[in-house]
């Protein structure tokens, strides 16, 4: 319904046919009903599309609603959540699908989840091989005789060394545990990979290796949605970046332009990059608003140097930026 689709799926790296996005999210909102009639607007009017072979990084501060968005796509929201909008995975609306459909045909099969903490995601008392074989059997129906081979192939795809297949999770380093979890996520050969903070708590080398591997899987034609607060990781692998603030996507941009020149156009996104130690290292004044108590207008206005009276109304996204006073677009704006 909105006059301008905030998403212009044009990536210089991976040309995208607009007819066949893997995932297309349209005005997705999530509300939590709390005790005492309070409402928490965790996600508001999020819209984006994701093409095969493309990596979209959803970035934002903790508590901005980005993990809720991921949970909504997987149908893993708690009972007090209400969703509106659409999230089409092929021709299936993930928000309308019932638990049975999601459990039997979506999770693992059409969406592979790369977890936040692999060590917690793996069963501690079983070897990587047995977990892989079980997942292969469940998801692909490979006959018993072929299981061993299929599991080894799955490990191979995530660059998990075959020599370590018979180890238990606690015998693996952080990097190998992450690869084991990724191998599990890849078994169902899902067209969409969803990585929720895949690098939290890892050190820089491991972050780089983990996201590079994710990028490799995107390069084989999968769509990758990476949710992260790690801007360096996003910069390393993303084709496009979606910046979330207080439950809204305030800017969607091509990653090279966003991280390089001319830089972000939304004042929040600019300030977020300026907080990096390799840049100005200055924090954004104040704190994000409570999702249960959002202003009617732009949620960033109270912390924004450019705020004016106009900011008391909600800015509609134009060219992927939801701001009344955006940084001028480089070439042809106005």
């Amino acid at each position: 319904m909105s006059p301008v689709n905030p998403v212009t799926p044009v990536s210089p790296v991976h040309p995208v046919s607009p007819t066949s996005p893997v995932l297309s999210v349209d005005n997705l909102s999530v509300r939590f009903r709390m005790r005492g009639g309070r409402q928490i607007a965790a996600v508001s009017d999020a819209s984006f599309a994701l093409a095969p072979g493309e990596c979209l990084a959803l970035i934002g501060e903790s508590g901005c609603g980005k993990s809720v968005l991921a949970s909504a796509l997987l149908g893993l929201l708690p009972r007090n959540a209400e969703t509106t909008g659409r999230a089409l995975l092929g021709d299936l609306d993930l928000l309308a699908a019932d638990e049975r459909t999601l459990a039997r045909t979506v999770r693992g099969r059409r969406i592979g989840l790369v977890p936040q903490s692999p060590s917690a995601h793996l069963t501690p008392v079983r070897t990587v091989r047995s977990q892989l074989e079980e997942t292969v059997r469940e998801l692909t129906g490979v006959p018993k005789a072929g299981l061993r081979e299929a599991a080894e192939a799955a490990a191979e795809r995530a660059a998990f060394p075959a020599t370590h297949l018979d180890r238990h999770p606690h015998q693996l380093s952080g990097g190998l545990a992450q690869r084991a979890a990724t191998a599990l996520a890849l078994v169902g050969d899902a067209p969409l990979l969803l990585a929720d903070e895949p690098t939290t708590g890892l050190d820089r080398d491991l972050v780089d290796r983990t996201v590079d591997e994710l990028r490799r899987h995107a390069d084989t034609g999968r769509a990758l949605l990476m949710i992260t607060h790690d801007l360096a990781a996003a910069r390393r692998i993303a084709d496009r970046v979606a910046v979330m603030y207080a439950g809204r996507i305030v800017e969607i941009a091509d990653a090279p332009a966003f991280f390089g020149a001319p830089g972000p156009r939304h004042p929040y996104a600019r300030a977020l990059l300026d907080a990096l130690p390799e840049r100005a290292f200055t924090p954004i004044p104040g704190m994000p608003p409570e999702l249960g108590d959002l202003p009617d207008g732009c949620a960033f206005a109270p912390r924004c140097a450019r705020a004016s009276a106009r900011c008391e109304t909600l800015p509609a996204p134009v060219d992927g930026v939801a701001c009344h006073h955006p940084e001028e677009a480089t070439a042809c704006s106005n």
Binding site: G75, L77, P78, R79, E82, T83, T84, L95
Partner: peptide, 13 residues
Amino acid sequence: ADPRTRTRMADPR
């Protein structure tokens, strides 16, 4: 009022 509002139920089992 939105007819598309849905409530996600936890696993019935």
